Simulated assay, not measured.
Amino acid sequence: MDDKMTPSKLRSSGDRAVFQPLSWTAERNLMNGAIFLCLLSLPLALLIQSDMRLVYGVSTWMKPWKFSLSLGLHLASIAIFWPWLSPAPRDRWTGGLMIRLLLAMSFFELFYIASQAAIGQDSHYNVSTPFTQIMFQLMGLGAVILVATTFIAGIAVLRAPADGNPVLRRAIGLGLVLSGALGMITGAALGSNDGHLVGVPGNPADVVPLFNWSREVGDLRIGHFFGLHALQIVPLVGWIVARHANTKMALHTVHAAAALTTLVSLATLGLALSGRPIF
């Protein structure tokens, strides 16, 4: 695309390029899985209101509710971006394997989290029995497979033939790659710690609403959150600038968004590891 194309022409091209994957040219299996997980959040939300049991001061159903939405959004994003992958991994057996891994690991994670919530126990860092020890390790393996597959999908987007909108392709590819890489780094920090907190809060109830991030000590979940959601942040920035700027400026903006997202994820991780809160 010529750098001198007018914003109106870029807007038209960008709209076609980004909205086409939003139709059912998106990967149907991933999208169906995403819809199911998001719909599952509705009865889980009702359980939060009706079941008064608490785990570490919050509803026993809060964690499965958040994970159903988070995993649903993750699968939906990859489903939408799937047509941007290069044909080699997308249309061969490797593409089918990636889809099965993403779906299987997402449903496995949520099933165990919800089953533990049903008996009033935590799923993460629960190593009180041989069974929970094994399941916690399997959850870690499942998370690794999820982010590794996301990373591979991003590489496949960046290596695809240079057709369509180059700004969106770069944004989608970087979003997938960063979500996989930062998710792996921050997830490793979480997995190697005895819990998601670094330090002992004086008031465990002093947390950020909804997210339950500690306001008193380091919380490793914050960096993990920003890292994983690079999958949505960077492509969203790319979609916006592809409609309003020339290609060169739009690409610079996408790179800046990717760098800033990386910085925020790693900086909040570093603060948490030092035991300091960010709120």
Rank of each mutant, 00 (worst) to 15 (best):
H244M: 13
F279T: 09
N126A: 04
K248P: 06
S23L: 01
A171G: 10
P166M: 09
G218N: 02
S123E: 09
C38T: 07
T25L: 03
G199H: 04
R276Y: 13
G180Y: 02
R170H: 10
V207E: 01
S115H: 12
R159I: 00
P7F: 13
D163G: 11
T268V: 08
A114W: 10
G195C: 11
I152D: 12
K63G: 03
P64Q: 07
P64V: 09
N126T: 01
A118Y: 04
A181Q: 01
A162W: 01
T268H: 07
D3F: 05
H229T: 07
N246D: 15
L210D: 09
K63M: 12
V254C: 03
R16G: 06
A230L: 02
Q133M: 14
M62K: 12
L176P: 05
Q20P: 01
F67M: 09
Y112S: 02
C38Q: 07
G191W: 14
L220M: 04
P89T: 06
S274M: 13
L158W: 14
T268I: 07
L266G: 09
N246I: 15
N29S: 14
P204R: 01
H196S: 05
L138T: 06
A245Q: 12
N212I: 14
A205H: 05
W84Y: 06
L103C: 04
L69Y: 09
G57Q: 06
G270C: 12
H229R: 02
D206E: 11
F226A: 09
W93S: 14
M184G: 05
H224S: 08
L101N: 03
L178G: 04
I48V: 10
V55K: 13
A245E: 11
V127H: 09
T247P: 03
Y56V: 04
K4M: 11
L197V: 10
N212P: 06
V58C: 01
A88V: 04
K248S: 15
S106D: 12
R215A: 11
G191A: 15
G95Q: 09
D2T: 12
P130E: 03
R169L: 05
P201Y: 04
P161S: 02
L263W: 15
S23Y: 01
A257F: 05
N246C: 15
A104D: 04
I222H: 03
L228F: 13
